Computed example of a mutant assay.
Amino acid sequence: MPKIGKKYQEAIKKVDRNKLYEPAEAVQLVKETANAKFDETVDVAVRLGVDPRHADQQVRGTVVLPHGTGKTKRVLVFAKGEKAKEAEAAGADYVGAEELAEKIQGGWMDFDVAIATPDMMGVAGKLGRILGPRGMMPNPKSGTVTFDIEKAVGEVKAGKIEYRVDKAGIIHVPIGKASFDAAKLQENFKAFLDVLAKARPAATKGQYLRSITVSATMGPGVKVSPQKAVAK
Results as ranks from 00 to 15, higher is better:
Val156His: 10
Ala203Asn: 02
Asp16Leu: 09
Lys103Pro: 04
Val173His: 00
Glu102Phe: 08
Thr144Met: 11
Phe38Thr: 06
Gly159Asn: 02
Gln28Asp: 14
Val113Lys: 12
Val46Lys: 02
Pro140Arg: 15
Val214Tyr: 00
Lys37Ser: 15
Val222Ser: 05
Thr146Gly: 03
Ala36Asn: 12
Ala116Ser: 15
Lys6Phe: 15
Ile149His: 01
Val63Ile: 09
Ala199Cys: 12
Val195Ser: 09
Met109Thr: 12
Gly221Met: 04
Met218Gly: 01
Gln105Asp: 11
Pro2Leu: 10
Lys177Thr: 01
Asp166Gln: 13
Ile212Met: 04
Ser211Ile: 05
Leu100His: 03
Glu99His: 08
Pro201Ala: 13
Leu131Phe: 09
Pro118Thr: 07
Gly154Trp: 09
Gly219Pro: 07
Val214Asp: 00
Val44Arg: 01
Gly128Met: 12
Val173Thr: 03
Ala89His: 05
Ala45Trp: 07
Val214His: 00
Arg129Asp: 12
Ala97His: 04
Ala203His: 05
Ile104Thr: 11
Ala197Asp: 12
Ala114Met: 07
Val95Gln: 10
Leu193Lys: 02
Gly128Asp: 08
Tyr94Glu: 13
Ala79Lys: 01
Phe192Tyr: 08
Lys80Arg: 13
Ala178His: 01
Lys232Gly: 10
Asp56Trp: 13
Ser215Tyr: 09
Met109Arg: 15
